[in-house]
Design a protein around this nucleic acid. Structure first.
Lengths: 171, 171
DNA sequence: GTATAGTTTCACTAATTACTGAAACTTCAG
DNA sequence: CTGAAGTTTCAGTAATTAGTGAAACTATAC
C-alpha cells in the first residue's frame, strides 16, 4: 500500500497522496475510518486530507442507505483527475505569478536598470500567458482529438506545413 | 525587489527564487556577495542556492579578467529558462512516479481487488507516458512551429480534420 | 611557500509545515 | 428532546525544511 506515497510528489503532502492513492486502488468507496486505519493516521488528519482533496475537486462523497457514514471515492476518470490536478496547479502556481508580474509591469521604469528589468518581466509574462492560454484551449478540446494530436507527436510540424500549403493555394 | 518571491511557487524555495529573480532583473552578472547583500541572506545560503540553480541548469558562471570572483547570470533566454524548469520538474516529479508505477505493474494481480488496482495503475501509467512523450516532442520542435501551433489554439482540431480528409483522398 | 580573496561545507538554530487527539459540533432515529 | 454515530476544529507537538555563520577549503599573485 505504500505505493500511494508517490502522490507526495504531486502538489499535496504525503498523507493526502496516500489517501487518494488508496481511493484509486479500491473499487469500493471508503469511509474516513477505513482510511485512517489502513494508513495508520489519525481521524482528524483524514478529515483535513478530505478537505484538501475536495479543494482539488478530486473526490466525490456518497452515502449508503440506512447508513450515516460518508463514503469517499475518486471523482471521475483518471483523465479527469489529470485535468484537475493540472488545472488546480495552474491556479495555484501560474495565476498568482501572472498577477504579480502584471502588478509590477504597471510601474513605469525610470532608470535604465529598471527598463531592462521591465523588459525581462514582460517577456516572462507574455510567455506564461501564451502557454497557459494554450493549455486552456487544449483542455476544451475533446479527448479524441487530443489523443490524435499526441499520437501525432512531432509529426505536428508536418501537419502545419500541409496547412500552410493549403492556405497558399487558396489565396 | 521582493517581487523575486514569486519564484517560491516554482519548485525551489523562497531564497533561491529571489536569487534567480535578481539575476533575471539585472543585466550585469552578479557576484555571490552582491546577492547576499541585496537579499540580506548569509553568504553560505547563497552558495547553496547557486548549487541548486546549477542543478536546474539555470545559471552560467563567468569571470572577469584580473578578478578572481565568480559572476553569475541566468543561462540562456527566458524561453530556455521555461524549457529547463519544465524539463527538470518532469525529471523530478513525473519520472520517479512512472518508474514507481512500472515496478508495481510487474507484480501479477492475484485477487480481484488487485486486478482492479492493477488496471487503475496501468491507466495512470499510460496517460502519464503519453503526455510526457508528447511534451518531449514539443520541446524538440523549433520555437517558430511551436508558436504557430499555439496561435492556432483550439483551431488545431480543424487542421486535424483537414489532415484526415487529405489522407482519405490519397487512399 | 604564504598571504589573500574568494568559495564550500556543515553542525546548529529558526521557521514552517504536518499530525495528533480530545473537545466541539452536526445529524438523525426514536 | 436525547443520545448515538458520525464529522470537524484547533491548540499543542512532532517532523521536516530552510538559513546561519564560523571553520575548512581552494586558487592565485607575489
Amino acid at each position: 500500500m505504500h505505493c500511494g506515497e508517490m502522490g507526495s510528489r504531486w502538489g499535496f503532502n504525503r498523507t493526502v497522496g496516500q489517501m487518494y492513492g488508496l481511493m484509486i486502488i479500491n473499487e469500493e468507496p471508503l469511509t474516513a475510518v477505513d482510511i485512517a486505519e489502513t494508513l495508520n493516521i489519525s481521524r482528524g488528519n483524514v478529515s483535513m486530507g478530505i478537505k484538501e482533496l475536495q479543494s482539488w475537486r478530486l473526490i466525490s462523497v456518497t452515502h449508503k442507505p440506512k447508513d450515516r457514514k460518508e463514503y469517499y471515492a475518486p471523482a471521475g476518470s483518471i483523465w479527469d483527475m489529470a485535468i484537475r490536478v493540472f488545472e488546480e496547479r495552474r491556479k495555484r502556481e501560474v495565476d498568482p505569478t501572472l498577477s504579480l508580474l502584471r502588478d509590477n509591469l504597471l510601474d513605469e521604469p525610470s532608470t535604465e536598470q529598471e527598463t531592462y528589468a521591465h523588459k525581462q518581466l514582460l517577456e516572462i509574462h507574455d510567455l506564461l500567458e501564451t502557454v497557459t492560454e494554450w493549455a486552456g484551449e487544449l483542455q476544451t478540446m475533446n479527448p479524441e482529438n487530443l489523443t490524435t494530436l499526441m499520437k501525432l507527436g512531432s509529426g505536428v510540424s508536418k501537419v502545419l506545413d500541409i496547412k500552410d500549403k493549403l492556405l497558399a493555394n487558396n489565396s
